[in-house]
């Protein structure tokens, strides 16, 4: 059996969800062989459509106001998988990582991870921009890793 492939639809920034809903309506109305549509976090301006053939995606998307065209070529599932099922941030973050805070009152600030509480899903971050050491405890979901700390001593576990 032929495996479905993934096609990128370029849309106006910020209109991804709205356009995905519109394309969904079209697929249903025309009974097109599109199996799923995805608006992926971290992939702005793109909707990923899963279909056997590109013409189905083309028919579903072309002519809509905020659609800027189809991306060339197609993707394998392995390329899309990491966006569709991302690892929880608490599993990825490590002590001494440089992180940016993406939510809450400290949004936009950068800091270094000093403590990780996996059971609560919380991370203690020391804000680097502050004039004095300012450790704050926030949910790991509000973090983005900017750079990783290298393993100390070279012989890490």
């Amino acid at each position: 059996m032929r495996r479905a492939r993934f096609y990128g639809i370029r849309v106006t920034l910020g209109q991804e969800v709205t356009m995905a809903l519109l394309i969904e309506e079209r697929v249903k109305a025309n009974k097109l062989p599109v199996y799923s549509l995805a608006v992926l976090p971290g992939l702005r301006g793109v909707i990923v459509a899963e279909a056997d053939v590109s013409y189905a995606v083309q028919r579903a998307a072309t002519g809509l106001k905020h659609v800027r065209g189809l991306m060339r070529g197609s993707m394998e599932f392995s390329e899309v998988e990491k966006f569709v099922a991302p690892k929880p941030m608490i599993e990825m973050v490590r002590i001494n990582d440089l992180v940016e805070i993406t939510g809450g009152p400290f949004v936009g600030m950068k800091g270094r991870v000093v403590e990780i509480d996996k059971s609560k899903g919380e991370v203690k971050v020391e804000i680097t921009e502050a004039a004095y050491p300012l450790p704050i405890t926030i949910s790991a979901e509000y973090l983005r890793i900017l750079s990783r700390q290298k393993e100390e001593g070279g012989g890490g576990r």
Partner: peptide, 14 residues
């Protein structure tokens, strides 16, 4: 992020 599943049986994402 949002995933719209249209055909759950054939979709690899689903």
């Amino acid at each position: 992020g949002m995933v719209i599943i249209l055909d759950a049986e054939r979709s690899q994402v689903a």
